[in-house]
Simulated scan of single mutants.
Amino acid sequence: MVQRAVLETRASARRALRGWLTERAPEAGRGASPPLVLVALSGGADSLALAAAVAYEAPRVGLRPGAVVVDHGLQRESASVAAGAAEQAAALGLDPVHVERVRVEGERGEGPEAAARDARYAAFARVAGRTRAAAILTAHTRDDQAEQVLLALARGSGLRSIAGIPQRRPLPGSEGAIVLRPFLGERPAITRQTTLAACGELGLEYWRDPHNGDPVYARVRVRERVLPELERELGPGIAAALARSADLARDDADALDALAEETLEEIVEHAEAGIAVSLAALAANPPALRHRMIRTIARAEFGVQLSREHTLAVARLVTDWRGQGPIDVPGASVRRELGRLVFTAR
Rank of each mutant, 00 (worst) to 15 (best):
L242F: 04
A134P: 03
P188I: 04
A16K: 01
H72A: 08
R290D: 06
A55C: 05
I178F: 01
G84H: 06
G303F: 08
I294R: 07
L151Y: 01
A332V: 06
G235K: 08
G19T: 08
R120I: 10
H291S: 09
A5G: 07
E309W: 09
V99Q: 03
R250A: 15
T141K: 00
R120V: 12
H310V: 07
P35I: 04
P34N: 10
F124E: 01
R120N: 06
V334N: 04
G339I: 07
Q167C: 10
I327E: 11
S161L: 11
V99R: 07
A154L: 14
E100H: 15
N212D: 14
P287R: 14
A345M: 08
G303W: 08
V99L: 07
A82G: 03
A82P: 01
R187S: 15
R322M: 10
R181H: 04
A276W: 01
G237Y: 09
A284P: 02
A83E: 12
G73R: 07
G213H: 13
S47C: 13
W321P: 01
A128I: 04
P34T: 09
P210F: 09
R250T: 12
V6F: 07
D257Y: 10
L7V: 10
T195C: 02
R346T: 10
N212Q: 15
G62Y: 07
P330G: 07
V37Q: 02
A13M: 05
A189Q: 05
A154D: 15
L341W: 04
L171P: 00
L38C: 06
L341G: 02
Q3W: 05
Q324E: 15
E262M: 07
A332P: 02
A5D: 03
V318T: 05
R60H: 08
V149M: 10
R108V: 12
A276G: 07
R130F: 09
P215M: 11
A52F: 05
A154I: 11
E175V: 05
